[in-house]
Structure formats: structure tokens, C-alpha cells
Write a protein that binds this DNA or RNA. Structure first.
Lengths: 240, 240
DNA sequence: ATACATAACTTGTAATTACAAGTTATAAAA
DNA sequence: TTTTATAACTTGTAATTACAAGTTATGTAT
């Protein structure tokens, strides 16, 4: 019962994983041609439909571009599938000097009355853990984020430190929870006194607001974030 | 030479387009099951690999979710490409409430001096086709969009009608150009007089601004959009 | 040397066959 | 009535064959 699991993985998927790995690792540099379908057939001992299935997925995910009569050209690395599909908000503002500062310790409360997403029965009765943080870029606060995490089976969560740590990382490393997708609502608003205070701007300045729902690998388990962003000096950037 | 063009379109693509159309039009409501692969085979007189190719694309674009042993379930929103899906803050507004109104006929011009993305030599010397449109939801303008399309090998483009048509759809169905990825910058700004006029709001109201680059399956060919969105009553919504 | 035809590639389309594996409704057995 | 096994679905995997169509290099004739 040792290595039986790997042999259950279909061939097209194994080939996909391998090629994908090679692409992101630079074995096939961007702009170069992948081996032809027939070459891949013989080197991996599969038939062309199988190879094409693997290549088809790579193409649909943006790793390669296929050209009839020419071949499959390696494309630049896709950052993610979706608008602002950030690994946390960190990658959104680029590689500036970014620090995360907790405003308070995580605390539990009931869900807000005007919560922008529908909640399940279980989520509602469990309440939520709230995490308030600001993100500081080059010394000035740019993001103010409130995260709402359903208080379901997260032992010692409020004791964890989030200083300069991504919520995503904490969830994955401590609880094996991975974000697999999500949904977000984006709007422009005017800063009120509270938000203006957090972001060090005037009341009435334009603010980018995001309401995000992050779906995880735990079926039915999601967490949520409200993000307020001062885009006077920095804009949010996303690849898809 | 009349109807030869349509017969050149491969069967899996015709089936994909048809099913996609039926899904977005609600012929197959969200949550419902699509006809089984074998049913689709017989009704459209093709074989299962062809059907599976069409369904595979629908699945990868988020229109359906396939379940082994069960069937293909229609999903709510297409993930990934585009945030052209608007949703109201009060109640869900379907796509049927959304109308696209061209402000002027498409016209060619040189690229703007302060264009927010880098352009290639070829793009620069070719100039661009500009498309100005507003999107109207329930009678009130919500989006103002300027699209910049490199004037390269797009026969009769300025004669095409964009009334209530997606630019994506026109590019795909007329020129076989598909958006495979992109990059966007998002910020909140205050409306000036011109934008306020287009969106029927006051000067100084908060506006969501997007600068987007859309990469296509034509190597090196991208098109661009600047989007101004009034999010007082509607927000932009995206899945990933 | 240049132009053009051709051969040797490449991916695209599509039908066919076979079986594996997951889901669901039905019918028989407890 | 409840449980269980089975049959009849569903999609998933995979090999095989055949030809169409686009690209590129290699020629030969001009």
C-alpha cells in the first residue's frame, strides 16, 4: 500500500504537473518551444490525446501558447487565476518595503449585521474572529484590512501572532487550510474619519474598498476580508 | 463563397459557443444539469471526444462544473477573464439589465502620450482604434470605458456594431482573437467634470478607475482599456 | 543568388473502441 | 420497513487511426 497512490494519478495529469514544474523552474525558459507532441509521446510513453490533454490544460491556465504548425511556446508565469488573486494582499502592492501591523489582538464577536456576504447557519451561530491590521508601505499606511474568520475548529487562533505574517500562511501552516478560490466586490468610496485616521489621509479622500470572500479546501469553510486602500500613491495591481 | 466561413468552424467550437450562449441566456439555469455527453452526441451528431472538448472548455472557463458519475452542473459566474459582470448592491442584477451604448463610432488615432502601459514599436507605428462606450444598468450609466485596440490586421473593424455586444465577443467571433490573460491597475479617484458627465454624477464623487491590458492568443497582440466606474449603487464583482 | 516548389515537420480536428469509476434509482432480500 | 445488492445511468481515462492545415527548412530550377 506504499506507492499505490501515485500510480492512481492519471498520466495526463502527471505529465501536466511535470511540464508545469519544469516551466516555473525555468527548465523551459519563457519564449522557448516545448518539445513537440510526438516527442512528448515517445519520451513519456503515452499517446497523443494524452499529451494533448496535458498541453490543453497548460494552455488554458496560461503557461503556454499553442501555435498550429509551430509548437507550444512557453509564456510568462501566471500569477493566479483572477483579478487581484493575491496571495494575501502582499503581492498586490509590489515589492516595496511592506510591513503588517496589527491594530489589536484578534477577538471574537458576532457577525456584523450588514455583512456583505451570505453566511451559513453554522457560520452564523459560531460567530467570528476579527483581525484588524494595517499594511505600511515605505513608512506610510496604505491598506487597512479587517478579516472575519468563522470561529470553527481553530484551536488557539487568537494566540497566534500575525506581525508581518500573511493570514494565508498562518492558515496553511497551522491548520492546513488553503485558499482555493474566492469572490470579491470592488468599489470606490470616500474616507470617513475612522478610515482616514487609519490611513493617514483627509476625510473625503477617495478610497478603494474591497469585500472579499476566500473559499478554502475545507468544504463550506470560507473566510472574509474588508480592505480599505489609499490609492493616492499606490494602486492595486493584479495579473490574470 | 457565401456560407463557407461558418462551415469552417470546428464542431467542438460550434457546440461550445451554442452551449455557452444557452448558459448565459438562462436556457440552462444555474445549478441545473446540462444534457449528458451521450445526449449531446446524438442531438448534435458528433462523437464524445468532440463533446468533451466543448465541455472541457466550458469547465475551464468556469461556466460548468463536471462531476464524475453525475453530470455537468451550470455554474453561476464565469471565473477569470473580465470583471465585466456587474452586480447591484441592493439586489442581484442579471445581465439582461445591462446595456452597452457606444458614445461614438470607433475611430483611429495615435496612442495617447500618457498611455499607462508600454507599447511595442509595431503597436506605436500602427496607431490604435478607440472605442468609447458606456454601460447602462437599469437606465443609469454605471461604466464608462475607453478601449484602445492596436490597428493591426482587423478588417472592417470600425464598421462592426458594438451595440450591446462585448468587445471580447466581437474579437473572438470575428477575428478568432481570444483573451488569455492580462494585467490591471486599480485605483480610486474623484470624478472630474467630463467623467461626471458621462456617469451622470457630481464632480468630486468617488470613482473606481481601472487600467487594463488584455493579452490575446495572437502573439504580441494586446488591447487596452481604461474603465471608470460609478460604484455608488453598483460594485464591480469578480471571481477567482 | 534568388524564387519557387516540395518535403518534412508542427498542431488541429474527429471518429472509434474499450474499460474504469462515480452516482442514482430500482428491485430483491432481510 | 429497512437494508443491501444490482442495474443503468453518468463522466474519466486512454489507445488508435486518419486526415487537414499551418510552418519551416531544403532543395531544384531559374
Amino acid at each position: 500500500m506504499a506507492g499505490t497512490e501515485t500510480s492512481k494519478i492519471p498520466q495526463h495529469r502527471k505529465l501536466y504537473e511535470l511540464l508545469r514544474k519544469h516551466i516555473v523552474e525555468g527548465v523551459y525558459p519563457k519564449g522557448s518551444l516545448l518539445p513537440s507532441e510526438n516527442e512528448l509521446c515517445s519520451t513519456h510513453d503515452v499517446t497523443r490525446p494524452t499529451v494533448r490533454q496535458a498541453l490543453s490544460r497548460l494552455a488554458s491556465e496560461g503557461y503556454i501558447i499553442k501555435h498550429q504548425g509551430k509548437g507550444s511556446i512557453v509564456r510568462s508565469l501566471p500569477k493566479g487565476i483572477g483579478i487581484l488573486s493575491l496571495q494575501g494582499t502582499t503581492s498586490g502592492v509590489g515589492k516595496h518595503n511592506l510591513k503588517t501591523k496589527p491594530i489589536s489582538k484578534p477577538y471574537t464577536r458576532k457577525w456584523p449585521e450588514d455583512f456583505p456576504f451570505d453566511l451559513s447557519e453554522l457560520e452564523l451561530e459560531s460567530g467570528c474572529i476579527v483581525l484588524e491590521r494595517t499594511r505600511i508601505v515605505d513608512g506610510s499606511p496604505v491598506l487597512y484590512e479587517i478579516s472575519y474568520i468563522p470561529n470553527i475548529n481553530l484551536p488557539r487562533f487568537t494566540n497566534k501572532s500575525f506581525e508581518n505574517k500573511s493570514l494565508f500562511d498562518v492558515m496553511r501552516s497551522n491548520y492546513d487550510i488553503e485558499v482555493i478560490g474566492g469572490n470579491q466586490k470592488i468599489m470606490a468610496i470616500l474616507a470617513n474619519k475612522e478610515i482616514g485616521n487609519y490611513l493617514n489621509i483627509e476625510e473625503g479622500d477617495p478610497i478603494l474598498k474591497l469585500e472579499r470572500k476566500l473559499e478554502t479546501n475545507r468544504s463550506g469553510y470560507s473566510f472574509y476580508s474588508s480592505i480599505y486602500c489609499n490609492t493616492n500613491n499606490f494602486y492595486l495591481e493584479g495579473s490574470f
